[in-house]
Design a protein around this nucleic acid. Structure first.
Length: 297
DNA sequence: GTCCAGGAGTGAT
DNA sequence: ATCACTCATGGA
């Protein structure tokens, strides 16, 4: 399904495509043998390659430049954010290690759905579930020899519950279908939730069954650009306990309060750098020295 | 076979 | 409010 292709080169400041797309905030990008990234965002296919501080983007989307500025949130000054959260040697190590990691602005429904599927799960398996859903219920998009599928809409999911149940979602299946129904029937509106103040937004998101504090924070951070969100998952819990609470005895809620106060209004960025760095660091320690390292461009 | 993974719901204290 | 238990699936 080849479609009309638009190409641009766009200048970027501080951006690492590798850390941004492979840090775990998004599940939909695939690295090609040539070092490009192919993915579907919304209804369009994208093929992106980084050359230093230029992103070369091919897409079925008409206005690629506007898309890139919004998706990569290029109007926010990453340097000043990193400077503000750079409070000690631990976060500093992460900032140096994962330089150029930017928090994306992703589509709310796909983000909510993906993170509902993330509960008690691992990243490869989450990717497989999202891919299963898209392959079966999404629409195909092709670009320069690559192809992928759009993420299914809420109504596509509610209309095909039998298909959804065959996607290997486990106990999360009911939560996903229920969320799709809630949105399809208009009982919740993600666009409205996305412009609420952070804490109200968080409360609204947690009304979805299957969405607790952590997943609500992921949606607020990765979709709504609320950088004061601080998702506490198993990695962050381990990492912050090791670094800041060696004597133990702290729960997720205490970790959340501490981090928000300690790192301030951009604590979400601190979370993502800590998550990315200390997770890769452990993975590298368990395997070879070079596994998971950013490719040189 | 066992443990773990970008957790959350439920029911008992 | 905080705990322990459970949920379905795949990989190490």
């Amino acid at each position: 399904m080849q479609q009309r292709c638009h190409k641009i080169g766009i200048a970027i400041g501080n951006l690492s495509l590798y850390y941004t797309l492979e840090c775990g905030q998004t599940f939909r990008w695939k690295r090609t043998p040539g070092g490009s990234y192919f993915g579907i965002v919304g209804g369009d296919a994208f093929l992106i390659k980084q050359h230093g501080n230029i992103l070369e983007i091919a897409s079925t989307e008409r206005n690629v430049g506007e898309w890139a500025r919004k998706y990569f949130v290029l109007d926010v000054d990453l340097e000043s954010i990193l400077h503000e959260i750079d409070r000690d040697e631990h976060i500093h190590e992460a900032i140096v290690s994962c330089g150029g990691l930017r928090i994306l602005r992703q589509e709310p429904w796909e983000t909510l759905a993906s993170y509902i599927l993330s509960a008690n799960n691992n990243i490869p398996n989450i990717k497989r579930m999202v891919e299963n859903l898209s392959r079966r219920l999404g629409r195909i998009r092709g670009l320069e020899g690559y192809s992928g599928f759009t993420f299914p809409s809420p109504s596509a999911i509610t209309k095909n519950k039998d298909t959804v149940s065959k996607c290997g979602l486990g106990f999360r299946c009911d939560y996903l279908v229920e969320a799709a129904e809630t949105i399809k029937e208009g009982r919740e509106d993600l666009e409205r939730i996305g412009v609420l103040p952070y804490k109200e937004c968080r409360e609204e998101l947690m009304k979805f069954r299957g969405v607790g504090a952590k997943i609500a924070d992921c949606v607020a951070l990765f979709s709504f650009g609320m950088y004061e969100a601080f998702p506490v998952d198993v990695w962050i819990r381990r990492t912050l306990r090791n670094l800041y609470f060696p004597d133990g005895g702290v729960g997720d809620k205490q970790i959340w309060h501490f981090a928000r106060q300690y790192f301030g209004r951009y604590c979400g960025y601190a979370q993502e750098y800590l998550y990315c760095h200390y997770r890769l660091k452990r993975a590298r320690g368990l395997t070879s020295r070079t596994a998971g390292r950013a490719p040189t461009i």
